[in-house]
Write a protein that binds this DNA or RNA. Structure first.
Length: 586
RNA sequence: GCCCCGGUAGCUCAGCUGGAUAGAGCAGCCGCCUCCUAAGCGGCAGGUCGGACGUUCGAAUCGUCUCCGGGGCACCA
């Protein structure tokens, strides 16, 4: 049992006894908060229950605290209890829980600190899910690093986690991509044109066009004058860029017939493969890539819309089908089927989330960019309309990463092709630094990502600080054989020899890891792990500078080596949760 | 106009489910390698926690108002 819980129980038992003896009015006990103290002078843990209950007990907080302290039994884990300030009960621990922490770390290994909080509950975490219309940029990187760390964290907390990438392989954006590719292809065939303002401008579009040209030669070549027949003018010519591009999509379908799909699929597949590879290289692997198109093919789209209709939440207006989401608190009703008969992205989303529930997940966690926050209410509304429990669906919004280069804010737009890709970032600062940097900020925090800083000062990145501690420990342990010293022996370690303040501090930190992990998982905050690791690394570096490990005194040497072995284990375990490597040398 | 997020040290950020003297990294200044990796360690300096009012024994933390910054409010995805 965790230390905090043990202390909670002790206090709870005392309070119950006091109620039974009429020393306290009978009430439902509030949750007893046991917290780590900030200052050493306040002991290791403190409890504020006396102040919380003072009014109820109609006595001064300090008097109540004194009564509680008087009745607390002696235990192996508590060395001293003090009453302080307005009525805090401060616990000073014995060394036993500290020693036990070392033993636990070494016996449980990478599972140290893991809990069964989730009780095997099935959770699906959906993240990134960027449209396959271009390479991932640094904004997606944040979602990827955060989502993956969260999934690992939830697994460590005992949830049965499934990760998924929702591929928007249907819809208008994909058609715009297809047209962009085809027009570039036509340029490769020697045609000249004003490239549409609303088409995808990035260089990767040329690459896709080139691969079609390689495999199909000039098969898909059509005279440029034919292509633009009947297409409304583009924006630079005083027209509407949306109408212009839609006109081109229609012409492309007419002129290419079944070959349109060749272009479409080539774009989709090349980009999806690229995204998949990119994420994989970043250390992010999804359990499943879910195709939006499959919702159409399987009939789930139709079914979802039909169910909404049957439940009485659909109506027609101006040729479109609307979902009455205002019935569930959304600010306005939403279109699910447009007047041209096409379903909206929102309709796909309804079907997709229904599908997740049908697959038996108890909790649906979506990680979205902050710009999608307006969607939360309508998806929740739809789930309610379909008789699902909206509280099983949770959206975590990741704020934007604002990029700076040379002090200048950078524009980020997939359409214009102006963006720094995730791949560029990884190449420049490395996966480990990128992942740690991303996860160092909680997701709702706006992030200033200074590229110059990340590149030029990558050795100042806090990730190296943590990794360095790990590598240093590995280095020390590696020298044992060179010096003909025995490997650390935890079974026979005399932990009572570890009397230095630095050692006590480290043991206390090792013990704390369990609490940090649980809190990080509960609050969906991987950054807590990152900050913890930096603290632990700091404690180690300080220890390293103050004391020698490879000393002649065998008993002390063994105890110290067992201790740093435990540090190494926790550093490696924590870094793994963040998807960061733990190198043995640097 | 409405909604979401942020405003804490020169810079980037922790702390926010109320607790006891507000923390870290970077930048600045001063020290530490004949010794297990100096990508390290120690020290100094640096703050009206945007502002006001309120709730409370106690507020950076909760509530209301307000100012500043980012984002969102489509028959786009």
């Amino acid at each position: 049992m965790k230390l905090k819980q043990q202390l909670q129980l002790l206090v709870a038992d005392v309070l119950k006894a006091m109620i039974a003896d009429d020393l306290l009015p009978a009430i439902d006990l509030p949750e007893i908060s046991i917290e780590r103290t900030r200052q050493k002078e306040h002991g290791d843990y403190s409890c504020n229950i006396a102040m919380v209950l003072a009014k109820h007990a109609r006595c001064a907080p300090r008097d109540l605290a004194q009564q509680i302290v008087d009745q607390l039994p002696d235990t192996k884990i508590i060395a001293k209890i003090e009453l302080a300030g307005p009525g805090f009960i401060n616990f000073y621990l014995t060394d036993e829980p500290l020693y036990q922490a070392i033993r636990d770390v070494l016996s449980e290994g990478r599972r140290y600190g893991h809990t069964d909080m989730g009780a095997g509950q099935k959770v699906i975490v959906e993240f990134v899910s960027a449209n396959p219309t271009g390479p991932l940029h640094v904004g997606h990187g944040r979602g990827a690093a955060y989502g993956d760390a969260l999934a690992r964290l939830l697994r460590a907390a005992g949830y049965d986690v499934h990760t998924e990438y929702y591929v928007n392989d249907a819809g208008r954006q994909m058609n715009i991509l297809a047209v962009s590719v085809w027009l570039r292809y036509l340029e490769l065939c020697g045609e000249e044109m004003d490239f549409p303002a609303n088409a995808y401008q990035g260089d990767y579009v040329w690459d896709i066009a080139a691969s079609i040209h390689r495999s199909r030669g000039n098969d898909l070549h059509r005279k440029i004058d034919d292509v633009f027949v009947g297409v409304p003018p583009d924006e630079p010519l005083g027209g509407d860029k949306e109408l212009h591009i839609d006109g081109l999509i229609n012409r492309a379908k007419e002129l290419l017939g079944s070959d349109y799909e060749v272009v479409f699929d080539q774009g989709l597949n090349e980009i999806t493969d690229n995204i998949r590879r990119d994420l994989s290289e970043f250390g992010v692997e999804f359990d499943n890539w879910f195709s939006e198109r499959s919702l159409h093919h399987s009939g789930e789209m139709e079914k979802a819309i039909q169910t909404l209709d049957e439940n009485g939440y659909l109506y027609e207006k101006e040729g479109a089908k609307w979902f009455r989401s205002t019935d569930f608190g959304d600010e306005k009703d939403r279109v699910v089927v447009r007047d041209n008969g096409q379903t909206t992205y929102f309709a796909s989303d309804i079907a997709y989330h229904l599908d997740k529930l049908d697959r038996g997940y108890h909790r649906l966690i979506d990680i979205w960019g902050a710009d999608h926050h307006g969607y939360v209410a309508r998806v929740k509304a739809a789930l309610q309309a379909l008789n699902a429990d909206k509280d099983r669906f949770e959206v975590l919004l990741v704020q934007f990463a604002i990029l700076y280069r040379g002090g200048e804010k950078l524009a980020m737009s997939t359409r214009s092709g102006e963006f720094v890709t995730l791949r560029e970032l990884r190449n420049e600062v490395g996966n480990d630094a990128a992942r740690f940097f991303y996860v160092l900020r909680k997701c709702e925090q706006h992030m200033d990502f200074d590229l110059d800083l990340a590149k030029s000062q990558s050795s100042d990145n806090p990730v190296y600080y943590v990794q360095y501690a790990h590598a240093r420990i590995c280095s020390v342990l590696a020298q044992l054989t060179e010096r003909s010293m025995p490997a650390p022996d935890s079974d026979n370690a005399k932990f009572e020899l570890l009397t230095e303040d630095h050692e006590k501090e480290i043991m206390s930190q090792l013990l704390r890891y369990q609490e940090v992990l649980e809190s990080a998982a509960k609050n969906h905050e991987p950054h807590q792990i990152a900050y913890y690791l930096r603290d632990l690394a700091n404690a180690f570096h300080t220890y390293y500078n103050a004391h020698q490990f490879l000393i002649d005194d065998e008993g002390l040497r063994n105890a110290r080596l067992v201790l740093i072995q435990a540090i190494r284990q926790v550093l490696a375990g924590g870094l793994d949760l963040l998807g960061v490597s733990a190198p043995e040398s640097m």
